[in-house]
Design a binder for these strands. Structure first.
Lengths: 334, 334
DNA sequence: CTGTTAGCGCGTTCAT
DNA sequence: ATGAACGCGCTAACAG
């Protein structure tokens, strides 16, 4: 490994002079600078950023903890973060937690030791010893997608309640009263929020949803398939299904197709979050959409501002609007 | 920040003793160990792994450079790598290069400075100044998916030629002679290999493919749509399309549907690489499949063996078999 | 079993 | 404009 000293020796200067040239913050005569740069070139010297981080007490490393890297929603968020962060000269370590609270703790412990400068977290549980440790050490953390009110952290998420409200309102406007809600695991704030939106739409229409038609599972294809199957076995069956996540919607499609049901002729289906190549799935799904890429960028803004200490002490909260995209998967109640 | 010295002071021992307890490699009396652990607990001490890396000359950091993080093929490879690597106590930095050679160079420069212990690369060009720099510094690099013969590096890839051969042979066996090949950019080894496989199948059948029906574009949905459209405008049109990548296949489906063509009644379609939720696309696609997850794990084995210096000097090359999954998208030529 | 010394590569501080 | 000395947090090598 070539060090700053090797360069210094070759250039006939002191190590510190090389350091100054590298970080070109200080004065250095043109000739010295040139000699040093030539020596660097000649030796193929690369500054050891480990030592630099060590001295600067900044690693330029951020981390992103997501619950499911296979979900396009999260890859899109990740791209938003990656793009914004590298513009600012930072790097991101991407960690997949599989919705497992212990994995979150494990990763955070490692990352803490690695002296990361900040973290973006999709929390897998409402509490976390390691997040508290981050706070103690003054390492900024941004909570993504979910509410985590007790911990008083900056947060960026989309308005799940509103999205669910829009979808449900739309289904109600088509005459559906028996709308199955196929949701994720109880306890997650997004799950609760989407339920809230569903209930609000019913309340505003002066209707009461049938509690039998509200299902909780996981945000997976398999869960969607299973819950949709169970929903259909209720009598009388629902005339519409609202799947509160993209994978749940896909699983529901599978279940419906296997029973030979036509969408939307026999039953209506709406989803939450878009998918790439959604145009290929027939019928094209009506969904609530979230600005995933934008969410990533906003989170970066927040984190950088925290690092620059340009933010007030109290936690900031950014809530991005959700929308409704009407396609072909919902029809009027027969 | 609490350091090893703070712990030592509180426990009434020397810093090195704390170090020994942390890395529990050395002897330490039960009582001392206990006192130290208590002090660690009390202070909430976390070892600074930056310093550790500094001393050990090992960061425990690996990097993975992929060309398109939104392609499920690559997320699957990434998971395979991530799983295998974390079993071994390493971490992975995931970098997305968007098939851009300059991005590869930029990332490698940063990673080199960060003293990563090794790299997995999907190269975006046949040559790379930074890969040479890696070699010079003795940092192991594994080339994924593509051939890069001049650089003499370890490599793991799937047998593209074989996969393409199997698909083409199958289509020929159904009676198709005019098979459009919709491929990625000329110059990539996977693109060349898939073309080779296509040609070999024709040659073995004593047939000559029509060169008009061989198309190059990018590995994207849009490219698939465009090239399929162009293929259909040829007279006489192809009776089958072989899309040499999953996104290309999806784009082709779109083009075919828009022209109202039924698959496989009007035209046959086969792809390369599976997609998640493939069961939802109608008709289910016949494809060549690659063991993506396995590829990731194999690459890790190779890299770890390189780090452990248990491998012969000359570059190792692992080629994984590809298969053919016959579903419903291909039918006999009318 | 435990402690002392020294040094990793770099940048800050203070001097020249 | 340039350099010497010191120290960041940790551990290897050598005492004791």
């Amino acid at each position: 490994m070539t060090t700053i000293r090797d360069v210094a020796r070759l250039a006939g200067v002191a190590p510190i002079t090389v350091s100054r040239v590298i970080n070109n913050n200080d004065y250095a005569s043109k000739e010295t600078r040139l000699r040093v740069l030539q020596a660097i070139e000649q030796l193929g010297y690369v500054p050891n950023s480990l030592s630099q981080s060590f001295r600067w007490k900044q690693t330029g490393l951020l981390a992103l903890l997501v619950t499911d890297i296979t979900n396009p929603f999260w890859t899109t968020v990740a791209r938003g973060i990656e793009d914004a962060v590298s513009d600012a000269g930072f790097n991101v370590i991407l960690c997949n937690t599989d919705e497992n609270a212990e994995e979150v703790e494990r990763y955070l412990r490692v990352l803490l030791a690695k002296q990361i400068d900040g973290v973006f977290i999709v929390p897998a549980s409402s509490d976390s010893e390691q997040i508290k440790a981050l706070k103690r050490q003054g390492i900024p953390a941004i909570v993504l997608d979910r509410r985590l009110p007790e911990l008083l952290l900056d947060a960026v998420r989309c308005d799940s309640e509103q999205g669910a409200y829009l979808v449900t309102q739309y289904l109600l406007s088509l005459g559906h009263h028996r709308i199955a809600l196929i949701n994720g695991p109880a306890g997650l704030s997004t799950v609760e929020d989407r339920l809230e939106g569903y209930l609000r739409a019913f309340a505003e229409a002066n209707l009461t949803p049938c509690s039998e038609l509200i299902f909780n599972g996981h945000f997976t294809f398999e869960s969607g398939e299973e819950l949709a199957t169970r929903a259909l076995s209720i009598t009388p069956p629902p005339t519409a299904i609202f799947a509160a996540n993209n994978f749940l919607a896909l699983g529901s499609i599978k279940a419906l197709r296997e029973r030979g049901m036509q969408i939307p002729a026999d039953i209506s289906l709406a989803g939450f979050d878009d998918l790439p190549f959604t145009q290929l799935i027939e019928p094209a799904l009506t969904v609530a959409t979230q600005p995933a890429y934008e969410m990533g960028r906003k989170a970066v803004e927040l984190l950088l501002a925290r690092l620059a200490k340009t933010l007030p002490d109290q936690p900031q909260e950014i809530i991005l609007p959700t929308g409704l995209i009407i396609r072909q998967s919902c029809g009027p109640k027969k």
